[in-house]
Design a protein around this nucleic acid. Structure first.
Length: 285
DNA sequence: CACTCAACCTGCCGGC
DNA sequence: TGCCGGCAGGTTGAGT
C-alpha cells in the first residue's frame, strides 16, 4: 500500500470507527486523497502514516499543532484481518472497511467478525514515533531495539505470575495466549512462576524461546485454526501444526511423553507439560 | 502505582 | 432439531 493514494474509503458497522467524535463522514473525508507513506506495526496495532495533511473535515477536531501527519490506526482485536483483494471481488461477510486506491491496485479490506478490533485516526508527533494510542505498547522481542536487560529489571520489579507478565503488552508485546504457552513450554517454565524470582539465565532462556516461537510462527505464516486467521493474501498459516502444547490437551509432550494438561487461567486456558513445567514452590497465579 | 477482572462481540461446538 | 452453556487468538477501564 505504501506510495499509493486513497481514492475512496467505505466504513461499515457502528463499532468499526473508534475515538472519532466527528463521525465516519469526517474520518473518510480526512483520508481520501492522502498518500500512504509507510506501513508500521507494534504488537497487534498497525498504522499507516498518511500525507499530505488535509484541511477537510469538521473544525474543532484535529492536530494540536499544524504540521503533524495523520495516520490510520488499526487494531485487529480477536478476529480482525486485513486482506488485499481485487476491486470488484464479493464483499466478505464481516467486511468493516474498504480502502481503494487511485491506481486500481488491490483494495485493502478490514474484516472482523467479533468487532473487538477497529480503526481510528490520529496525529503523529514525530513521523517515526508510534501514534499516541500505541505509545504504551512495548517493543516485541523480534525488534532490533528490544532490550533484554530492561525487561529483566521490569520482571524483577513485578509481583505477579510469569504468564500474566508475558501477556502484559506494556512489558513485552507480540505475545498472546498461544505463543505465551509455546514459549513457556520451550523454556520449561511454569506460567505461575513468580516474576521477581526469575534469574537472568532463566530470563534469557525465556526470551530466546519467545524469539524462536515468534520467528518460527511468522516463517510458517502464522497460526490458523480457521479462515479467521489468514495472511493478507488470504492464505492460511501452518504454525498450528508446529504447536507443542496449545490445544493439545491429553497428547504426549514431545520432550518427555507426559500428557499435556489444560488448566483454566484468566478466563481462558493454559496448556503445559506437567513434567517439564513443574508448579513452583511459591506460585503466583 | 500495580494488579485483577468484567465487559466488549459473534460464531461454533458438544451435550441434552 | 433446537436450545444452552462454554469457549475462542485481546484490550480497555473501573475497581481494589
Amino acid at each position: 500500500m505504501v506510495g499509493r493514494t486513497v481514492q475512496s474509503l467505505d466504513v461499515y458497522g457502528p463499532r468499526t470507527l473508534r475515538r472519532h467524535p466527528p463521525g465516519p463522514a469526517d474520518f473518510i473525508a480526512r483520508i481520501v486523497g492522502c498518500r500512504v507513506e509507510a506501513a508500521c506495526r507494534r504488537g497487534k496495532y498497525l498504522w499507516l502514516p498518511l500525507s499530505p495533511a488535509r484541511v477537510t473535515g469538521e473544525r474543532g477536531w484535529g492536530p494540536a499543532t499544524s504540521g503533524e501527519a495523520p495516520a490510520v490506526i488499526a487494531h485487529l482485536g480477536m478476529s480482525g484481518q486485513f486482506l488485499a483483494v481485487e476491486p470488484g471481488a464479493p464483499d466478505e461477510p464481516h467486511l468493516r472497511a474498504r480502502f481503494s486506491f487511485t491506481d486500481g491496485a488491490p483494495e485493502l479490506r478490514f474484516v472482523d467478525q467479533r468487532t473487538f478490533g477497529g480503526l481510528a485516526l490520529e496525529w503523529l508527533d514525530h513521523p517515526q514515533a508510534p501514534p499516541p494510542s500505541v505509545a504504551h505498547i512495548a517493543l516485541d522481542p523480534v525488534d532490533p531495539a528490544f532490550d533484554r536487560t530492561s525487561v529483566h529489571a521490569a520482571l524483577r520489579r513485578r509481583r505477579t505470575g510469569l504468564k500474566r507478565a508475558l501477556l502484559d503488552q506494556t512489558l513485552v508485546s507480540g505475545i498472546g495466549n498461544i505463543y505465551a504457552d509455546e514459549a513457556l513450554w520451550q523454556a520449561r517454565l511454569h506460567y505461575a512462576r513468580a516474576t521477581e524470582s526469575l534469574r537472568r539465565p532463566e530470563v534469557e532462556r525465556l526470551l530466546d524461546a519467545v524469539d524462536n516461537v515468534l520467528r518460527a510462527a511468522m516463517a510458517a505464516g502464522g497460526t490458523s485454526f480457521d479462515q479467521l486467521y489468514v495472511a493478507v493474501n488470504g492464505e492460511s498459516g501452518w504454525f498450528e501444526r508446529s504447536l507443542e502444547v496449545y490445544g493439545r490437551e491429553g497428547e504426549p509432550c514431545s520432550r518427555c511423553g507426559a500428557a499435556i494438561r489444560r488448566e483454566p487461567f484468566m478466563n481462558r486456558s493454559s496448556y503445559r507439560c506437567p513434567r517439564c513445567q513443574r508448579t513452583p514452590r511459591e506460585p503466583r497465579w
